[in-house]
Write a protein that binds this DNA or RNA. Structure first.
Lengths: 367, 367
DNA sequence: TTGTAAGCGTTATCAA
DNA sequence: TTGATAACGCTTACAA
């Protein structure tokens, strides 16, 4: 008998564990004068309860401050309503809006975001065990997964959507922006405007995004028959931009025609060093471009030529895709590709409309 | 009998709910040839299990890919090992590193971060119900809580630490940086250097941090017997800085001696508009200062005079404080106050060492 | 529509 | 140290 149990535990003020007694659906049932299952049903969207019963239950619940226990529900339904988001600190630092976006979209689906941050891209293994423990209904991962890790998601049947990471293997779902294509576009436009000697300040080695950007650039230059670029490595921060530029000039023996930076932060660092420390006229003597279209890249002091990913749409689609998978619905697109949009700032000489001044400046002037 | 149940559910492949059968501690026990309790104990840090038993269990667990179910544990122990972090999108946007920091510190304590993001500071009510449902062990809140909401945390006995929000009421725990004091310091130093007519570009109305910064400034000016400042409102973004400056000049009929901005982003916007659009020499004709010491404020193009909060320490202490509360240990400091550190950039004329060039420039020159 | 009862997968108590 | 067993608080057949 269950009722007896309740009375018992009241007497002991919590039989097994020391904590204070919590209000449960039994208490509500008792007060409302209905069965416990009636209470449970009253809190479920499409259950069959008469309005009268539901009203009684809700009144009693309110009186007792009753809130259903998610852990118990999770145990019973085998769904936790939790979505794991795994992201490296680096990514969060440079794309904070994406996390907000994901959080909002996940909440909109009635789920909650369990956050796992990584010191490095490849640290996923350290948190994976916790991901399993919490029985998350799905995961969105913006970090590097090994083949074994990918396989484990499949084996444990945890729906997975990769966010801007290269999905090796066929059955892996992902939203991703074509970084190589973006880099190719940038190179094409710069070449069109007469740039011949390119240089790149690369991102950190563990960033697949950076790798794609680099390979896209190198490939396109090769296709165009232009000289091989000078590539130096950076780690996505401001200092890398300035240091990278110095290294490039050192290695090349002169100022390159164009410097493509792995992200906007480095582009800004490169710009500042060029203008304030080396006295290089940008874009007159050298063009500079970045990636990501950070807020800062649009500031008056910079107006960086850069490539914007449709991050808002990507986040929304990632969550939508995950939900489809969680509901076991078939026919979901396995992966969605996006294209970056070139923002013609005033740090690179480009041909074609709108030409000078840059797109942003023109918009400002028009406003 | 439990074993019978297992056999049954195998036969039906999940009795009640349709999902695939999961590996449970019973399966491990069966394979290892021990009782289920032995399995449970083997997975608990300080339980009394013989090495031999533990080894058998671990071998079997590995063979079956067994992972304990957090929901079941949570139900039984009444601890979820979940910490809710409630933060507004705005805050996350401008302080992404804090979230990373909190996440890391929480993980270090063996807990996990359940993220709740808010469109506005005052939207806490919308997510609170979910916070209760998930039975979080504690919460760190960087948003505005009403008295009722504060009371509800107390009533439900959910340990709470406010992050940089004014704790009304006595028994509310918090880590907070003294924003008013920081503003007072800034005003003092600027006044010392001869600035008389101050202006402020205020933050959004729902930001208590902005309110404190403003009141600190106004109070200190009053104490010093300086003219009342011109205060215009902004909303922490770049455009607000430029618009704010124009409004100030409009209202004052001239350029003020010093503009204090509610955050660095607005300070940067203000600077760019002053220099590039209005041709004002900064700091020669006008000083500009901000708050938060963003990365961007240290960039060569800006080198903003600003105030840095010890965010890393604050995040670590917030989590440490929360853990103390969760463990029911008494003697925890009820609230911890921090002081900001003035970063003497080159956008404001200040007296005293190190004088010109700004601190950052001097450091760079020395390097 | 409603109540009864059998799970969900753990931990904790108690006796052996 | 070990095993049997009773919670933990919910959902969901199934029967009424």
């Amino acid at each position: 008998m269950r009722k007896k149990t309740i009375i018992d535990s009241r007497a002991f003020s919590g039989t097994v564990n020391g904590g204070a007694r919590r209000v449960t659906s039994y208490d509500v049932a008792l007060l409302a004068g209905v069965s416990q299952s009636a209470v449970s049903r009253s809190f479920q969207p499409g259950a069959s309860v008469s309005p009268a019963t539901q009203a009684k239950v809700m009144r009693a619940a309110a009186a007792l401050d009753y809130i259903p226990n998610a852990a118990a529900r999770s145990l019973s339904t085998r769904r936790s309503n939790l979505v794991a988001v795994i992201v490296s600190n680096l990514a969060n630092r440079y794309y904070p809006q994406e996390l907000s976006e994901l959080s909002e979209q996940i909440a909109r689906q009635g789920k909650r975001l369990l956050l796992f941050t990584l010191e490095r891209e490849t640290d996923v293994g350290k948190v994976l065990c916790d991901v399993w423990q919490y029985q998350v209904d799905g995961a969105i991962v913006a970090a590097w997964l090994s083949d074994e890790q990918l396989a484990e998601f499949a084996r444990r049947e945890v729906p997975l959507v990769l966010y801007n990471r290269c999905p090796r293997g066929h059955d892996v779902h992902a939203v991703l922006c074509d970084q190589a294509e973006a880099a190719r576009l940038l190179v094409s436009r710069l070449a069109e405007a007469g740039h011949r000697q390119f240089a790149m300040i690369d991102g950190p080695g563990d960033s697949t995004t950076a790798q794609e950007r680099k390979s896209g650039m190198v490939e396109r230059l090769l296709e165009l028959g232009l000289p091989a670029p000078v590539v130096v490595s950076g780690n996505y921060d401001y200092a890398s931009g300035g240091q990278g530029l110095r290294k490039i000039i050192d290695r090349l023996g002169r100022v390159p025609d164009a410097v493509i930076c792995g992200n906007d932060i480095m582009a800004i660092g490169c710009l500042d060093t060029a203008r304030h420390l080396l006295g290089i006229q940008v874009p007159l003597n050298m063009s500079v471009a970045g990636f990501d279209a950070l807020d800062a890249s649009g500031w008056l002091s910079y107006d960086v030529t850069t490539l914007r990913q449709p991050t808002q749409k990507m986040a929304a689609d990632a969550v939508a895709m995950l939900v489809t998978l969680m509901e076991g619905r078939p026919g979901a697109a396995e992966r969605r590709r996006y294209v970056s949009c070139l923002i013609e700032g005033s740090t690179a000489r480009l041909t074609g409309a709108p030409g000078y001044p840059g797109q942003r400046q023109a918009m400002r002037a028009a406003a």
